[in-house]
Amino acid sequence: MKFFDVATAGEEVLTGRSGTLGLISLNRPRIINSLSLGMVRAIDAALDDFERDPTIAAVMVTGEGERGFCAGGDIKMLYEGGKAGSPEPATFWREEYRLNARIGSYPKPYVVLIEGITMGGGVGLSGHASHRIATETARLAMPETGIGFFPDVGATWLLSQAPGELGTYMGLTGEPVGATDAIAAGFADWLVETSRIPEIAEALASLPATAGHNDVAAVIAETASPATALVFAEHRNLIDRCFAFDSIEEILEALSLETSEFATKARATMLTRSPTSLKVTLALLRKGRSSPDLEACLEREFAATDEILRTPDFYEGIRAAIIDKDRNPKWSPATLDAVGPALVDAFFAVRDERLFG
């Protein structure tokens, strides 16, 4: 969706307004709008301005370019900063996670447009929004187990609240899902054809300044298309059956007993992921189910980032995916049976610094 003349705009985040609609657009299209610390701060400042402005009814958040809304956080910065012992990774996660929590409780309607690639930090900017529109181009994922990390930005809340074991499947495999499956899993609310987005934006901009969440929802619902899950509709029973266990070994064993191509692929994909990340992710997801709210999950994720910076898989995963791009990470430990309870428990140690309260 084009609201700005990006040819003359150098900022990483563009802001403006159309009628009573506040506009925020991520503007790093060359790298699919990957988030920097400066972008996190700019989004937070824009939300401040729109929240205080009585003439703004709602906020709409989009991404520039054709490839996607947001591919995630600035992984290269985290890699380099972590290796150098810089405070920048911790600062980035601290401010990003606080922004994720703010989005979850933002008082005005926060409308997000999920188009194309939406991963990691992009899910943090979209998944907690009050009004989440996915277009037919959406490819949403939390692929962190593939880079020696774990789903963060509050995703352990979203994934653990997904129906059945859909969130467990998404979190462990990191496989991308389309718009209708994202809706089925609770990561989006409406399917809207790309061609109709300008119509929605115009209608939202014409709402009175006193309009509320229900008014915004009614505008979007008028143009939304029916959203029937595809992959999840076909494989829901298998996913619920195989991913219900509380150990990675049991999940893999259950998948091995299935005869479908879907199960074979899911198992093969998991076996390429970091064994440590798989076990930490499953533990985070199970703890997420008993958490009272988003902030509790973000607090737990933030504490776990302290350990991730000391974990070799984090650097090896980013090296293989982003730095050298050989797609051939050498995990350490290399096998699930070598990842003992003490290794996993280290990610759940109590941290002195807290995000909230």
Rank of each mutant, 00 (worst) to 15 (best):
N214W: 05
L336M: 11
T281D: 07
K265D: 06
P329T: 04
E307Q: 06
A201W: 00
P333K: 04
S277I: 09
E222P: 00
R236K: 10
I251S: 06
I220G: 12
I323D: 01
E316V: 15
T259R: 08
P329Q: 03
L271W: 11
D215P: 02
F302G: 12
F245M: 09
D215S: 03
G340I: 06
A211P: 02
D215W: 02
T259Y: 07
E316R: 15
D324H: 15
T259S: 05
Y315L: 10
A229Q: 13
T305M: 09
I197L: 06
L238A: 07
P198L: 11
S332G: 05
T223N: 10
E199S: 12
S291N: 13
D337F: 13
I251Q: 07
T305Q: 05
P275W: 15
A218N: 07
Y315D: 02
E249P: 04
R327M: 14
T276A: 03
A227E: 14
L238M: 15
T228C: 03
I200P: 01
A268N: 14
E250P: 03
I248F: 07
A296R: 07
E299F: 09
S291C: 12
R273M: 10
L309Y: 15
D246W: 03
S291A: 15
V216P: 01
R300H: 04
M270D: 09
T259V: 05
A209Q: 12
K330V: 12
T264E: 02
G212Y: 07
H235G: 01
K279T: 01
G340C: 06
A268V: 07
T264G: 14
D313L: 02
A221P: 06
T276I: 12
D246K: 15
T269F: 02
S274I: 11
A296F: 08
L309I: 11
A201V: 08
R327V: 11
Y315T: 08
L271G: 13
P312A: 01
E307W: 00
T272C: 14
V231T: 10
R241H: 07
I323V: 15
S290V: 11
A233S: 14
E202C: 03
M270F: 01
I323P: 02
P329E: 03
A254V: 05
D337M: 07
D306T: 10
N328R: 14
A334F: 08
Y315G: 05
T311Y: 01
L207Q: 09
E295G: 09
T210L: 13
F243D: 01
A201R: 13
E261K: 06
E301Y: 03
C297I: 13
E202G: 05
K287E: 03
L284A: 00
A201C: 07
G212W: 06
V339D: 01
E295M: 09
F314V: 02
T276C: 00
L282R: 10
E258V: 09
N214V: 14
A209M: 06
H235C: 02
A217T: 08
R236M: 00
I197A: 09
L252G: 07
K330R: 15
F243R: 02
I318Y: 01
A321V: 08
R267V: 03
A209C: 06
D293Y: 13
A209E: 07
I200E: 00
T272V: 15
L282Q: 09
